[in-house]
Design a protein around this nucleic acid. Structure first.
Lengths: 213, 213
DNA sequence: TACAGAACTAATGAATACAGTATATTTTAA
DNA sequence: TTAAAATATACTGTATTCATTAGTTCTGTA
């Protein structure tokens, strides 16, 4: 019960959610005052939440001007993917030794669910399920620093990240990605840490995602 | 000119410096009030600087209790090194294509200077020079996300990180590390991106540094 | 009409004030 | 003498206020 609700953190989470949900779009201006009156609080916690999000890279901040939702250029997106790639590959490699039957089953479950999301061309579901798939082994990697860096990088990316190309192309890549997911599961089953690292590094991220940017 | 000095950022930098310099040690409590009166400012910018540093992982924050300089356990240090390792390996791989003579000469210069620091058993010099050596290629990697993540991770580490073991052992490892540095330079000269990535991943970081923790 | 400059507006940066909680101190009882 | 309870103190969380600056609008002149 030493559980306080620090307003600043509450506000941060709310705003992060709204950005993830696409209610706040890149380049949207976010003023302290608006946040205050929307939540019925004073400027202090609102301001601190905004500074926090800016520090995380979710928002862009210019002195004396204020905050905007960060917009990633295609080049910046590839930069982020490159960082995600190595960290995720490391997470995978580390998670191999913690891989058990329960984890494998769980991953397989999500692979099947992703298949369905692709079949019905459900974009939001794909994004959510794909995240859950990767979270399974990330959560088991036993390195909280890597976990924190990864979730920070992923949180900056809104689902709309992909929506540049046409939909057919998009779901074509999603299919390839889910084949990747099956392969990832098989490598976990074989406990092939090196193979998994190389596959995540060379195939699953930059290579595939560059087609969607 | 459009150059403001935002107090919050000024304070952040000052505190970060003091921590880097070892004037503030792990577990030291840092109260807002102390910072205020030390710098003759109000609580607002002091508080925001502390929150920023906590968000960066340099400080530890407990609600209603305040801020302390973060102390890394041996396990946490290894976690950080593992993250640095993959990101630095990526930075190296990416920097290979930007490697030119000037860069090689600059790196060789630092290798020589590090030799001298080791010869005279100058610990602070070794730390500073080693950082400069790695910064050369990190700055040339062309991926600002990776650069930012790396400098964030490195800033949390104070120079005292190593000081656990006895000094002889320490400088023994430093010698090995500087041999590594020579090898890194040679890989840049050969423009062997893959070789560099593997060397940074498998040898230079976790493996060597685990001996010093 | 176009442009330059001044006044105005709105939002951020910083300071101060108020409220609530954790810690330290003191007091009291066993 | 010691331990527990009560009080006091110090510091954080939040609200409010003042100050400064970016952005806008209005006005006057060419």
């Amino acid at each position: 019960m030493g559980k306080y609700q620090i307003m600043r953190e509450h506000v941060r989470n709310l705003l992060a959610q709204e950005i993830q949900a696409g209610k706040l779009l890149p380049k949207d201006k976010i003023s302290e005052l608006k946040v205050c009156e929307a939540l019925g609080i004073s400027r202090t916690p609102a301001r601190e939440a905004l500074l926090q999000l800016a520090s995380e890279g979710v928002l862009e901040y210019t002195p004396r001007k204020g905050f905007r939702v960060k917009e990633f250029s295609p080049g910046e997106k590839m930069e982020v993917y490159a960082a995600i790639e190595v960290l995720d590959a490391l997470a995978g490699k580390l998670a191999v030794e913690h891989a058990d039957d329960r984890m494998i089953r769980s991953m397989n479950k999500y692979v099947d669910m992703i298949d369905i999301a692709i079949k019905y061309r459900n974009y939001p579901d794909y994004c959510a399920l794909q995240k859950k798939f990767h979270d399974i082994y990330r959560d088991q990697c036993g390195n909280s620093v890597v976990r924190k860096l990864l979730s920070g990088l992923l949180e900056g990316f809104v689902p709309h990240t992909y929506s540049a190309g046409d939909e057919d192309k998009l779901f074509e890549v999603f299919k390839e990605l889910n084949d990747d997911h099956r392969h990832i599961v098989s490598l976990f089953k074989k406990k092939d840490a090196e193979g998994l690292f190389n596959f995540l590094m060379k195939t699953h991220w930059s290579t595939r995602h560059s087609e969607m940017i």
